[in-house]
Amino acid sequence: DLSALRVEEVQNVINAMQKILECPICLELIKEPVSTKCDHIFCKFCMLKLLNQKKGPSQCPLCKNDITKRSLQESTRFSQLVEELLKIICAFQLDTGLEYANSYNFAKKENNSPEHLKDEVSIIQSMGYRNRAKRLLQSEPENPSLQETSLSVQLSNLGTVRTLRTKQRIQPQRTSVYIELGSDSSEDTVNKATYCSVGDQELLQITPQGTRDEISLDSAKKAACEFSETDVTNTEHHQPSNNDLNTTEKRAAERHPEKYQGSSVSNLHVEPCGTNTHASSLQHENSSLLLTKDRMNVEKAEF
């Protein structure tokens, strides 16, 4: 173990290094160091905050020279020094078990990766560091076993998940096959086929009936047209017969005018059967003409 005197000496050296690497504005270890034209180094955030307070150039807090945003430059070497100082402080805390008085939040800088452990060898070769390295080497064999167990647990979990997924996939297939086998029997399929065939026959029977009705309507229309044509021909046949009657009536009127007047009046009210309204109107006109002729003949006879 380190003596108290040596611990104090190391602590004083760390404090001196820390004062050199402090920012003059925030009085902390410089984060993202930036250098000016006057070779003074500050935190990048502190300098941008200072420049944004005034429009135009501002003055350096140490030498009062003008500073602009374009004049600022990043210093990589200074950032490396800060990183190495942080590593020294971490090693000091691990070796002594004491917390550094002016320690900052170094938890963000710590890294437990194997590459980081290899890099620590180049920091300080001390008894405390050696003991700590031995402890780490002793704890390393235990870690692979834990990793193997965790991997086995994960693989077993994956296997159970896969088996569950396969079961879920197989179950719908089985149910679907069961439904297909038990849903419709052979008799049901035959009945469905016969039902479809009967429906098709009914459709075939319905369509000819409609065509037959249309044919019957067409035949009825044709018969009505033929009947009207026969009526017209009958009226045409009746007209010459009426003319013959008129000639006979004229002759009778010349011989017996008194008797014919009474008979002509009675004939006005008689309509021949089986004739249309057109034929009756023609008869009325003929009878009126005959009456006028008879009157003329009677007057001539009187004179």
Score class of each variant (00 low, 15 high):
2 L>Y: 14
2 L>Q: 10
3 S>M: 14
4 A>V: 05
4 A>G: 09
5 L>Q: 12
6 R>G: 06
8 E>Y: 02
8 E>C: 02
9 E>F: 04
9 E>W: 05
10 V>W: 03
10 V>E: 15
10 V>Y: 12
11 Q>M: 02
11 Q>R: 05
12 N>F: 05
12 N>D: 15
14 I>V: 08
15 N>G: 09
15 N>D: 07
16 A>K: 04
16 A>V: 02
17 M>Y: 11
18 Q>S: 12
18 Q>E: 13
19 K>Y: 02
20 I>A: 05
21 L>S: 07
22 E>M: 12
23 C>I: 15
25 I>L: 05
25 I>V: 05
25 I>D: 07
26 C>M: 15
27 L>K: 03
27 L>E: 05
28 E>R: 12
28 E>C: 11
29 L>F: 02
30 I>P: 06
30 I>V: 07
30 I>W: 04
31 K>V: 13
31 K>H: 11
33 P>G: 07
33 P>S: 09
36 T>G: 03
36 T>I: 11
38 C>G: 12
39 D>W: 03
39 D>P: 02
39 D>I: 09
39 D>R: 06
41 I>L: 07
43 C>D: 09
43 C>A: 15
43 C>R: 15
44 K>D: 03
44 K>L: 04
45 F>G: 07
45 F>V: 07
45 F>E: 13
46 C>N: 13
46 C>Y: 14
46 C>D: 13
46 C>Q: 14
47 M>R: 12
48 L>G: 09
48 L>C: 12
49 K>H: 06
50 L>A: 05
50 L>D: 12
51 L>W: 13
51 L>Y: 08
52 N>H: 13
53 Q>F: 03
53 Q>P: 09
54 K>Y: 10
55 K>I: 04
56 G>A: 08
56 G>K: 00
56 G>D: 13
56 G>R: 07
57 P>N: 02
60 C>P: 15
60 C>E: 15
62 L>C: 06
64 K>C: 00
64 K>Q: 13
65 N>E: 15
67 I>P: 06
67 I>W: 06
68 T>G: 13
70 R>K: 08
70 R>C: 11
72 L>I: 11
73 Q>P: 13
73 Q>R: 11
73 Q>Y: 04
73 Q>C: 04
73 Q>H: 13
74 E>G: 12
76 T>E: 02
76 T>A: 03
76 T>G: 11
77 R>M: 07
77 R>A: 14
78 F>A: 12
78 F>L: 03
78 F>D: 01
78 F>S: 04
79 S>A: 07
80 Q>S: 05
80 Q>G: 02
81 L>T: 13
82 V>I: 05
82 V>M: 03
84 E>L: 14
86 L>H: 02
86 L>G: 14
88 I>Y: 04
89 I>H: 11
89 I>L: 09
90 C>P: 05
90 C>E: 04
91 A>K: 14
92 F>E: 13
93 Q>N: 03
94 L>A: 06
94 L>D: 09
95 D>N: 15
95 D>I: 15
95 D>F: 15
99 E>Q: 06
99 E>R: 02
101 A>H: 13
102 N>R: 15
105 N>D: 04
106 F>R: 09
113 S>Y: 04
114 P>S: 02
118 K>G: 13
118 K>L: 13
118 K>R: 04
118 K>W: 15
119 D>Y: 13
121 V>Y: 08
121 V>F: 02
122 S>H: 05
122 S>E: 01
123 I>C: 04
124 I>Y: 03
124 I>P: 12
125 Q>S: 04
126 S>M: 11
126 S>Y: 15
127 M>H: 05
129 Y>C: 04
129 Y>W: 05
130 R>T: 05
130 R>S: 10
131 N>T: 07
131 N>E: 03
132 R>H: 03
133 A>P: 07
133 A>E: 06
136 L>Y: 03
136 L>V: 11
136 L>E: 14
136 L>I: 10
137 L>K: 06
137 L>Q: 06
139 S>I: 03
139 S>K: 06
140 E>M: 13
140 E>F: 05
140 E>S: 06
141 P>N: 07
141 P>M: 14
142 E>H: 05
142 E>K: 11
143 N>M: 04
144 P>I: 04
145 S>N: 11
146 L>H: 11
146 L>I: 15
146 L>R: 12
147 Q>K: 12
147 Q>Y: 00
147 Q>C: 02
147 Q>N: 11
148 E>M: 01
150 S>C: 03
150 S>G: 11
151 L>T: 13
152 S>P: 12
152 S>F: 07
152 S>Q: 11
152 S>I: 00
152 S>M: 01
154 Q>S: 04
156 S>G: 10
157 N>P: 09
157 N>R: 14
158 L>T: 09
160 T>L: 05
161 V>F: 03
162 R>W: 00
163 T>V: 00
163 T>L: 01
163 T>R: 09
164 L>T: 12
164 L>C: 13
164 L>R: 09
164 L>H: 13
166 T>C: 12
167 K>N: 11
168 Q>K: 14
169 R>I: 00
170 I>K: 09
174 R>Y: 01
174 R>M: 00
174 R>G: 15
176 S>Y: 00
181 L>F: 00
183 S>F: 06
186 S>A: 02
186 S>I: 03
188 D>E: 11
189 T>P: 02
191 N>I: 00
192 K>I: 00
194 T>W: 00
195 Y>D: 12
195 Y>M: 01
199 G>L: 01
199 G>A: 03
200 D>C: 05
201 Q>F: 01
201 Q>N: 03
201 Q>S: 08
202 E>V: 05
203 L>G: 11
204 L>F: 10
204 L>R: 15
204 L>N: 06
205 Q>S: 06
206 I>E: 15
206 I>P: 11
206 I>Q: 00
207 T>V: 10
207 T>H: 14
208 P>W: 00
208 P>R: 04
209 Q>D: 13
209 Q>W: 00
209 Q>V: 07
210 G>N: 05
211 T>N: 06
212 R>I: 05
213 D>P: 14
213 D>G: 14
213 D>W: 00
213 D>N: 09
214 E>V: 14
215 I>R: 14
216 S>H: 05
216 S>K: 11
217 L>D: 14
218 D>L: 01
218 D>H: 08
218 D>V: 06
218 D>C: 03
219 S>L: 01
219 S>Y: 02
219 S>A: 06
220 A>L: 13
221 K>N: 08
223 A>G: 02
223 A>T: 11
223 A>Y: 01
224 A>P: 01
225 C>Q: 06
226 E>Q: 15
227 F>C: 14
228 S>V: 01
229 E>F: 00
230 T>R: 04
231 D>A: 12
233 T>L: 03
234 N>C: 00
234 N>E: 01
234 N>H: 12
234 N>T: 07
234 N>K: 10
234 N>Y: 00
236 E>G: 00
240 P>C: 15
241 S>C: 05
242 N>L: 06
242 N>V: 05
243 N>H: 04
243 N>S: 05
243 N>W: 15
245 L>F: 04
247 T>F: 01
247 T>L: 04
248 T>S: 09
248 T>I: 03
249 E>V: 03
249 E>F: 03
250 K>G: 12
250 K>S: 11
251 R>S: 12
251 R>I: 02
252 A>K: 07
255 R>T: 13
255 R>V: 05
255 R>G: 08
256 H>W: 01
259 K>C: 09
259 K>I: 12
260 Y>Q: 09
260 Y>C: 07
261 Q>V: 05
261 Q>A: 11
262 G>Q: 01
262 G>A: 10
263 S>C: 15
264 S>G: 06
265 V>D: 13
265 V>Q: 12
266 S>D: 11
266 S>G: 12
266 S>M: 00
267 N>G: 09
268 L>N: 08
269 H>C: 03
270 V>S: 13
270 V>Q: 02
271 E>G: 05
271 E>L: 02
271 E>H: 13
272 P>H: 03
273 C>L: 02
274 G>M: 10
274 G>E: 14
274 G>H: 02
274 G>D: 05
276 N>P: 02
276 N>C: 13
277 T>K: 15
279 A>K: 04
279 A>Q: 00
281 S>Y: 11
282 L>C: 07
282 L>G: 12
283 Q>N: 11
284 H>R: 15
286 N>G: 10
286 N>K: 11
287 S>N: 06
287 S>V: 00
288 S>I: 01
290 L>R: 05
293 K>M: 01
294 D>S: 10
295 R>P: 05
295 R>N: 05
297 N>S: 12
297 N>V: 14
297 N>K: 06
298 V>L: 03
299 E>V: 03
300 K>T: 00
302 E>Q: 03
